[in-house]
Write a protein that binds this DNA or RNA. Structure first.
Length: 281
DNA sequence: CGCAATGTTCGAAA
DNA sequence: TTTTCGAACATTGC
């Protein structure tokens, strides 16, 4: 479920639930969830480690442990659930369980089994694989206009596809990419290298603003997302385009249209978001 | 039955 | 070589 706002909300929940706890043992029921290292090593290395803090980079959660970094990506449906005691009934979709020395436990659930975890040496998470390639966090001080402009100029892909590329800016996913483009009045199929300077400035500001608002709302719950405390998000009431096929655009009342862009469902207002054939100076 | 679903990766094609 | 495309991963629900 997670795009940046959902992952950030999960991070906050985990922080209050498991910070300071010591791992006593780990169960892994679906080996492919563990990307690195070998499952046996993964499990044994975690024993005795304490959760110092929980960070986030893009859509990745990074558990800072006493002697390692645990990287976790929820992909489409990953969820963390905290329990004070070990339940007799293990849910069918529980794939990893971290048992703490105080008897409580953190379980990782993932219906589609797309999520991944990796245990890397202390303080090296930021240089691990895809984490190292992530673009800037979407904040005013880190997401710089000039870099964004340069990256856009080098790609002819549809702007929406480009926004989903985590090397552009970290954390945008399908819901927020749709929302951002609607708000910035840019057609999702507009080639990235044909955006005007004005549009790029507006797009950058909108990305920062939309994600910020969504974080404050605790994320968006469309189908299954809940945070680590089991709570749903609230941003779904603020959606203007995503999932609004045939419903009137909140700005001009033209029905929202759904198309496919880069294999992903894409919603937009054909009146507010017009495709330009040529770049205008 | 068929398709789509908050995502990323990897091999092939251009 | 670089960029883009599209299948694959796995399961559920409409």
């Amino acid at each position: 479920m997670p795009e940046l706002p959902e992952v950030e909300t999960v991070r906050k929940g985990l922080e209050q639930l498991i910070q300071g706890k010591e791992i006593q043992s780990v169960d892994v029921f679906w080996n492919r969830i563990i990307d690195y290292p070998d499952v046996t090593v993964f499990k044994s290395s975690l024993i005795g480690q304490t959760i110092l803090e929980i960070k986030r980079r893009g859509k990745y959660l990074i558990f800072k442990l006493s002697d390692a970094d645990l990287i976790s990506h929820l992909r489409m449906e990953g969820k963390y659930e905290y329990q004070l005691t070990s339940p007799e009934k293990k849910s069918k979709h529980t794939h990893v369980v971290f048992h703490f020395t105080d008897g409580s436990q953190l379980s990782y659930h993932d219906v589609r089994k797309f999520g991944r975890m990796a245990l890397v040496p202390k303080d090296t998470a930021i240089s691990y694989k895809a984490v190292a390639l992530l673009g800037p966090e979407p904040t005013d001080s880190t997401f710089l206009l000039e870099d964004f402009e340069n990256k856009l100029a080098r790609s002819s892909r549809a702007i929406k596809t480009q926004l989903l590329d985590q090397t552009m800016v970290a954390g945008l996913g399908n819901i927020y990419a749709n929302e951002v483009l609607w708000e910035a009045k840019i057609h999702p199929e507009q080639p990235a290298n044909t955006l005007t300077k004005k549009e790029i400035i507006r797009l950058r500001k909108t990305i920062i603003a939309v994600l910020d608002r969504a974080v404050k709302a605790g994320g968006t719950t469309i189908r299954s997302y809940v945070n680590a405390l089991g709570e749903a998000g609230h941003f779904q009431v603020s959606l203007n385009a995503y999932g609004k096929t045939n419903q009137p655009c909140p700005r001009c009342l033209t029905p929202i249209v759904k198309i496919k862009v880069g294999q992903r469902g894409t919603h937009f207002c054909p009146n507010c978001q017009k495709l330009r054939r040529r770049k205008i100076k």
